[in-house]
Design a protein around this nucleic acid. Structure first.
Length: 838
RNA sequence: GCCGAGGUGGCGGAAUUGGCAGACGCGUUGGACUCAAAAUUCAAUGAACCUUGUGGCUCGUGUGGGUUCAAGUCCCACCCUCGGCACCA
């Protein structure tokens, strides 16, 4: 240890510098050698599964990422001290497109780039002092992992939850692959930002829609999740109740089926509209209208899809020459094809009620179609069309006069009786498109045989391996379709020649079950052990970014429910508590390499130490808030850490042999000591509560700062003769356990300096002396008409009457009341005295 | 447009059940130490006014109302910021 000796004025005691580098590497090594963060699946302790979303290894971690892992680590260390058997694993979401792009650029294999990045990240995490059980590491790109991702696919396939169909797909021209709806953000690729186009392709889907209702309903169970995440999922599932109604087409024995949430407006239908993609358009269009309709369709299909489907866009359409008959009143209404009708939702056809729907209203205006009012505000107030709220039905035969939900129910009952329509529920949620025309992902374990057709690869032939010798074409397309040794295979059923599926799976499948693999990362005959998984799961605390509110979290919930239904697990929600942390900004923007505003933890660790980085990231703001990185704020925290060091450096040599007895208010002699002891216990409670109460680490740390300030005040106030060294040792022992989860290296070092044996990591979290929280004497404010005018020291034993008398006796108070009328005295015991004076 | 979160000093933020607004930190100012600087340390620091001064006094948590002995906190109306969804019938 580097020691710098200094002669001090008061007699020359040596001082040593806070050598974070030495301390941190030393304890990281000792922890690892002792293996104290290894977790057994067998333990008598209560379990705590602590999980931080694993990283996509795209490069090095910046402090924004680091904050995430620090939060998780503080919690893990705290929970261990609270006596839990803590599972705290780490892994890498290692398949994905950037690796492939990098491989194309550098003419190497994506694995090389991926493992390179993983090694860097791993080193960074270790230098930050993360207390992971490194034996449980999971790499989604390794065979022993993706074998089980393929197994998962087979389970879904066997149960009718994975299917293939030709479908319009979102295509990213840059990534040269299709994307799930969730992965298209504002019409652009979620990953690279390129505008997405539509193509027709044969694609694999997971039937997540079969779980729509449960995914929605079970959100109510997730009380440990942030409300906004639950709302986002609810919106995404987009359940709406209504009715399906059949509209016969005039002069044809055919009907158009529509979905509506407002059957109470059926009498107000003045036209129908079909989506441009609807096959009905081609089928129904009359010869006279054909050329005009075709021209319209051509124009619409050439338009940018995102622009076309943006709200408030111009409403355009063409009459297709046919008429539909309103089944409730026999009215004939024209059928249009219209740009604002979506093929993906409902039936791709709508009934249009311009009086009570904004879009239909705009369209009717544009094409001079009739607007017929059938709903009036229930309170009889004036309004303007379109009136889209619920109200009372008018001009609707025998239903006129009904209102709200009652009206809707009555109409649906009527439709069902007459066989015109039926009650129905619609979801915005679509099936999950999982095919990717990429190389660096989990191969889909399917074989195409000319004789047997589509055949799944049997479980005992897994994994379907990704080839290692690969040339990447300049075009950026996947090399798999052209790799003979991969594509050409034998049919598992008949043994004849067959070809492999060349698409790989969406990487969100990899990450939809990794939390199960951590439980048994080395099992080679099954993905996980059901008993072990049932013992560890659900995850007690999941920590990650809000950007996964819909995608990853919904997919994981879905997969868990499937495994539950198949009897592999006994829980149907994977994450009990979810915490979404805020981002770190720098120079007013999200950190990103392209903006050049990235702060790397590496230099900070080298210069100030991992403990300073950890503590600052927690102190900067409440962890759920976004926060701006501030260099001088960081230095402030580093100063605090050095201040801790100096205190221990000065006193631990004298405290080493001091024997600490039990402390209590009664045994302490002086006022200063009692005050300090009371503060110690109050702050201990505060810090404990702050951690438990939604991770308010920032206020917990401010409590630590206050406590340190109190100790400094005490040691500076008292000379060495009058200091209570037993109390001082007691406090320094306690303090070091309190700082440990935040600054574990410094904690261990100071713990050792106090003469204790390693490891502080295994010590219990301190309890506090409840008697010390309630001090006998305390000062309360006296307010007059709500303004503080005086203070008074009161004893707990005093009655309200005693306090009133004391207050009225005070000169200052007398002056305030003098000449006025005292109307009331309110005494809130131990808190405040308020007087009402007029 | 709909849904959600939020608005407190120069800045990040604190105030947990309605009970002293501004904890803690940053920044700023002044002092000590030093030949000097850095580091450290002590003190002040919401705004205005009065006062030689200990101090006093008024205002103050987005805006306007209300409830209450007492409101950052509860109620009503509104404004603004951020996030999500958005032609979903």
């Amino acid at each position: 240890m580097k020691r710098i000796y200094e002669i001090r004025k008061d007699g020359g005691i040596k001082m040593s510098e806070y050598d974070h580098q030495h301390i941190e590497t030393k304890w990281q090594k000792l922890w690892e050698e002792a293996g104290i963060f290894k977790t057994s699946n067998r333990s008598n302790k209560k379990k705590f599964y602590n999980l931080v979303m694993f990283p996509y290894p795209s490069g090095t971690l910046h402090v924004g990422h680091v904050k995430n892992y620090v939060l998780g680590d503080v919690l893990a260390r705290y929970k261990r001290m609270r006596g839990y058997n803590v599972l705290n694993p780490m892994g890498y979401d290692a398949f994905g497109l950037p690796a492939e792009n990098a491989a194309i650029e550098n003419r190497t294999h994506p694995a090389k780039w991926t493992y390179n990045n993983i090694n860097i990240i791993k080193k960074q995490l270790k230098r930050l002092g993360m207390s992971y059980d490194w034996d449980r590491e999971v790499y989604t790109c390794k065979e022993d992992y993706y074998k089980w991702t393929q197994w998962l696919f087979l389970k879904l396939y066997e149960n009718g939850l994975a299917y293939k169909k030709k479908a319009a797909a979102n295509w990213c021209p840059h990534c040269k692959t299709v994307l799930a709806n969730e992965q298209v953000v504002n019409g652009k690729c979620e990953r690279c930002g390129t505008p997405v186009t539509i193509i027709q392709l044969d694609q694999w889907f997971f039937k997540i829609t079969a779980y729509a209702e449960r995914l929605l309903k079970d959100l109510d169970k997730l009380t440990g999740w942030p409300e906004r995440v639950r709302v986002m999922q609810r919106n995404w599932i987009g359940r709406s109740e209504g009715a399906e109604v059949d509209f016969p087409i005039k002069g044809m024995g055919r009907k158009i089926k529509i979905f509506t949430t407002r059957p109470d407006t059926l009498w107000g239908v003045t036209f129908m509209a079909l989506a441009p993609e609807s096959p009905l358009v081609e089928e129904l269009v009359t010869d006279e209208r054909r050329s005009e309709v075709s021209a319209f369709l051509e124009r619409i299909q050439g338009e940018d899809r995102f622009k076309r489907t943006a709200a408030n866009g111009p409403k355009e359409g063409v009459f297709i020459g046919r008429w539909a008959i309103n089944p409730v009143n026999g009215e004939e209404v024209p059928i249009y094809v219209a740009n604002y009708v979506l093929m993906e939702y409902g039936t791709g056809a709508i009934m249009a009620v311009p009086a009570h729907d904004k879009r239909d209203f705009d369209f009717a205006r544009a094409y001079a179609l009739p607007i017929k009012r059938v709903i009036a505000p229930s309170d009889g107030s004036e309004d303007t069309l379109p009136y889209t709220a619920y109200g009372t039905m008018i001009n609707s035969d025998k239903f006129s006069g009904l209102s709200g939900k009652e009206a809707i129910d009555a109409v649906i009952d009527y439709l069902e009786e007459r066989g015109i329509g039926k009650r129905n529920v619609n979801y915005k949620l679509r099936d999950w498109l999982i095919s990717r025309q990429r190389f660096w992902g989990t191969p889909i374990p399917i074989v195409y045989c000319p004789k047997c057709g589509m055949v799944p690869v049997p479980e005992n032939q897994l994994p379907v391996r990704l080839p290692e010798e690969v040339e990447f074409p300049e075009t950026g397309a996947s090399p798999l379709p052209n790799l003979k040794e991969f594509v050409q295979t034998r049919c598992p059923r008949c043994g004849g020649p067959a070809t492999r599926e060349v698409d790989t799976m969406d990487t969100f499948i990899d990450s939809s079950w990794y939390y199960l693999r951590y439980v048994n990362p080395h099992l080679d005959d099954k993905p996980f052990d059901t008993n072990d998984v049932n013992a560890w799961l659900p995850v007690d605390q999941y920590i990650g970014g809000i950007e996964h509110a819909v995608l990853h979290l919904m997919y994981s919930r879905f997969i868990t429910k499937v495994l539950y239904d198949l009897g592999y697990v006994n829980f149907d929600e994977p994450f009990e508590n979810l915490f979404t942390q805020g981002m770190i900004y720098y120079k007013g923007a999200k950190m990103s390499k392209s903006k050049g505003n990235v702060i790397s933890p590496d230099e900070l660790i080298a210069r100030y130490g991992a403990d300073s980085v950890r503590m600052y990231l927690l102190f900067i703001a409440p962890p759920e808030n976004d926060a701006e990185w501030n260099d001088s704020g960081f230095e402030g925290v580093h100063r605090f850490i050095q201040r801790i060091w100096r205190l221990y450096d000065e006193y631990t040599p004298r405290l080493k042999n001091v024997v600490v007895k039990d402390m209590s208010l009664k045994t302490l002699k002086g006022d200063a000591e009692r005050r300090l002891y009371i503060r110690l216990n109050k702050i201990t409670k505060k810090i404990t509560d702050d951690i438990e109460r939604d991770f308010h680490f920032n206020t917990a740390i401010s409590g630590l700062m206050e406590l340190l300030n109190e100790v400094y005040d005490y040691v500076q106030e008292k000379n060495d003769v009058s200091k209570d060294f037993a109390l001082l040792k007691f406090i320094l022992q306690r303090f070091v356990t309190l700082i440990y989860p935040f600054v574990p290296h410094l904690g261990e070092e100071l713990w050792a300096l106090l003469g204790n044996k390693p490891f502080l990591a295994n010590e219990p979290w301190p309890s506090y002396d409840k008697d010390a929280l309630i001090s006998e004497e305390h000062v309360i404010p006296i307010t007059i008409n709500g303004k503080v005018r005086d203070r008074i020291e009161v004893n707990r034993s005093l009655s309200e009457e005693d306090i009133k008398r004391m207050v009225l006796d005070r000169e200052k108070i007398k002056r305030w009341i003098d000449g006025k009328k005292l109307e009331k005295i309110i005494v809130i015991k131990d808190k405040i005295v308020n007087m009402v004076v007029r």
